[in-house]
Computed example of a mutant assay.
Amino acid sequence: MFSSKRAHALAHGQQASLGSDTPMEPPRTPGRRPRLLAKKPARPGDTFGVPGQGSSAVTSLITVALFIGLWFVATNLHWIKPLFLPSPQAVYAKFIYVATEGFANSTLAQHTGISLLRVFGAFALACVTAIPIGVMMGVSRFARGIFDPPIEFYRPLPPLAYLPLIIIWFGIGEFSKVFLIYLAIFAPLAIAARSGVRSVSIEQIHAAYSMGASRTQVVLYVILKSALPEIFTGMRIGIGVGWTTLVAAEMVASTSGLGFMVLNAAEFLASDVVIMGIIVIGFFALCFDLLMRHLERVLVPWKGRV
């Protein structure tokens, strides 16, 4: 029978030798204490640590607070003239004014609403068309030969390069603005879908065929699901490009929109309105990115685990 001293040593995760009353400590994991009775199950890579593992929310909040604090100090101590960088108080006051009284014959809600309609309308059209085309480019060399040259040709071009051509073809109406944003989102989304399809493991495809799956079932249940992480990444990149293109789209014959508000304010050197518009655009872009991250965690729980 074990002595009480040895039983006590085993209860605390120590190794007891049958021939000695002196307990031996097990090898410790670098940077961690041994935990036999952990409250939560151990995760893959929890022993030695995975590069980049863990939440960065606290660091992000501290970084944002430091930037805002530096902005507050630099403007209130007059290190920078208000013409170049207005104070946070001035930007907040202008936010309240534009939200209630309006700017350029429209309130902030009206400017925001029309811009959201343009960006997310173009984004929805891009998702409906670019994702299927990207998947076809990945599974069919014939489709890849048709769509790859035009996409790769116009993808590096800045939207301002083909904006005059779009105006000549479709005029200065609402369609030309949405179409310009659509083209900017389409290319990265289609390429991401194609890249996701090409990254599917061939063993998974062979396993599905060996169990009697048809080509359509392999595409829908194996290839498409395996490509979802790349598709979500393409959606996040695409919506960012869409917000960038919004300013270019609202340069021509626009009377409302966040991009129009920023450009119009810049002509009159209204820096507070410019910064306010930039903050509003960044806020909605960040909210959408957080939403896409949440959907990715829900719909693609296996990402990074297989």
Rank of each mutant, 00 (worst) to 15 (best):
R198Y: 01
A11F: 08
L125I: 10
E267I: 08
W71G: 03
A122N: 07
V64Y: 07
I62E: 04
H111F: 03
A104M: 12
I205N: 02
V298K: 15
V91C: 06
G282H: 03
R144C: 13
F232T: 08
A143T: 06
A11K: 11
P150S: 06
R305C: 02
S3M: 04
M1L: 13
G19P: 01
D21T: 11
L290A: 11
P132K: 03
G19M: 10
F284C: 09
T63S: 15
Y92N: 05
S210K: 11
M137I: 07
R297M: 12
S87T: 13
A253Q: 00
P51Y: 11
A248G: 00
T255K: 13
T255L: 09
T63I: 14
I231E: 08
K39I: 00
L37H: 08
F147G: 09
A143R: 06
T129A: 14
V119T: 03
Y154L: 14
S3E: 09
I146K: 08
S106F: 14
Y162S: 00
L61T: 13
L83D: 15
M251Y: 00
V128H: 04
A11H: 10
G277N: 05
G242Q: 02
T59P: 01
L116T: 06
G121T: 02
R236A: 11
I279W: 06
V273R: 03
A74R: 03
